[in-house]
Amino acid sequence: MTHTPADQHSTPAPAELREQIEHTRHELGDTVQALADKTDVKARARQKAGQLKDDAVARAGELKVQATKATSRVQDKLPDSFKQKAAQAAGQARATATQAGRKWEEKAPAPLQQKTAQSAQLAREHRTLLLTVAAGIAVLWLASRIKKD
């Protein structure tokens, strides 16, 4: 900053000086706050993570709606005979799974049953992660199949 010699005509009044000082303090405070906000990495990361989470939730909702609509369209196009056969197959699969479960309980050793139960519990607790990984693998497999053709 350069200072010019003060004329008697250009000397500001004390009230004007106080106003300029207050204005400068306010600007300096805003600048310091802006710098502090930029250096607060944790807060910026939390804010970005929140935005990403909100975006992901919104996108997941959109995808769910699209999947529901697509499923409805496909089901509407299926003949009734196919739907009946699918329902029968699902019933048979449930019955077979129930039988296999009973045999497992009768014949498997207790320590093995405990380990299996723990694994099943972990799978239920991390269902979303498992489904995401499975979907990713399916996409990669499909992409590799498409590239080969």
Rank of each mutant, 00 (worst) to 15 (best):
K64S: 13
L130P: 01
L129Q: 15
W104G: 04
A70K: 14
A100L: 09
A117E: 04
G91D: 07
K53P: 02
L63D: 02
A95R: 08
R25C: 05
A70H: 11
E62N: 10
T96F: 08
R18F: 09
V57H: 12
D40G: 04
A43R: 09
A45H: 10
E105N: 13
T68Y: 11
L142A: 14
A67V: 03
A90L: 04
G50E: 02
L35V: 05
R124A: 15
A90S: 08
L28Y: 12
Q99K: 11
P111H: 08
D40H: 09
R124Q: 15
R46T: 06
P111N: 05
R127I: 03
Q88A: 11
A70G: 03
A134C: 02
L131C: 06
R145H: 12
A60H: 13
K103Q: 09
A123H: 11
A49H: 08
R145L: 09
L28S: 07
Q66E: 15
Q92L: 10
Q92K: 12
T31Q: 12
L52D: 15
D37H: 05
I21M: 06
K77H: 11
L35K: 07
A36H: 06
A108S: 12
A120N: 13
G50V: 01
A95Y: 05
A97H: 03
Q75K: 14
P111Y: 04
K115Q: 11
K83C: 00
D40W: 00
L122T: 12
Q33G: 01
K48C: 04
V65F: 09
L122I: 12
A93E: 13
A43P: 01
A89D: 05
S72L: 10
